[in-house]
Amino acid sequence: MTVMDPTLEEVKKRAEEREVLLDLENVSLSFGGVKAITNISFNIKKGEIRAIIGPNGAGKTSMLNVINGFYQPQEGVITFNGEKRRSMKPHLAVSQGIARTFQNVALFKGMSTLDNIMAGRATRMKQNLFWQMLYWGPAQREEIEHRKKVEEIIDFLEIQHIRRTPVGTLPYGLQKRVELARALAMEPELLLLDEPMAGMNLEEKEDMSRFILDVNDQLGTTIALIEHDMGVVMDLSDRVVVLDYGRKIADGVPEEVQSNPEVIDAYLGVSH
């Protein structure tokens, strides 16, 4: 980060220069007769933090679900890393390089922090049943090699002290952090964060913001972020897309979006 705030033009220019990682074209999704997403197009560029905002029920989470294959849109084309598709099996998202966290913490409650993060590496572990049963030779080597990676992430997010704690017993803020750790363990190219700071106090929010920036900065991970705290969104994100009633109403750098009258009507004006 530079000391001087860059001007609007500079920010826009920087965004322009980046390569497109994910491109959504005219995506529509409906459940029965209910339209969740109507004809939305936008893109996410490599290395940026892209915020998706909008009032409750605007279709933000559905948008993430479409991106990682959990929902299958009826129309539209999704291009990720040059590969076109409309839908895919959700468990394939990870091997493509898309990981995510959830609005309501979706950790494996009965498992320890360590196991939760290790589970994030499930797709990368290959040793067969036989070696696993012996826990020896290749199986043990593989386990340790991944443990090392996981420990790096644990250090990165400063959660060493809760390594062995069952996550069900952790306070909410830490659970959110473990969830981020699990997503990072998948070594994603694109990280989808669904309200990573919901229900947090100011201090926890600051911590989480710092981690998000660090991930983006040090690991070079592209991030798509849903968040309700406008301060956080405006500070963190490079570009913002605004949804309302399943439609896109604005798209651009934070300063632009902030001054867009439609956005103020739909969202900022109402809830703040």
Binding site: N68, P90, F108, K109, D115, Y135
Partner: peptide, 29 residues
């Protein structure tokens, strides 16, 4: 054999499915 299996990858995968199958699917299981 089962002690080993349950503390390794298979055990974690199964427990993940048990605790929250949707999340398990989305971490690539």
């Amino acid at each position: 054999a089962m002690i080993n299996l349950t503390r390794g990858r298979y055990g974690r995968t199964w427990k993940a499915v048990r605790d929250m199958d949707i999340a398990a699917e989305l971490v690539g299981i």
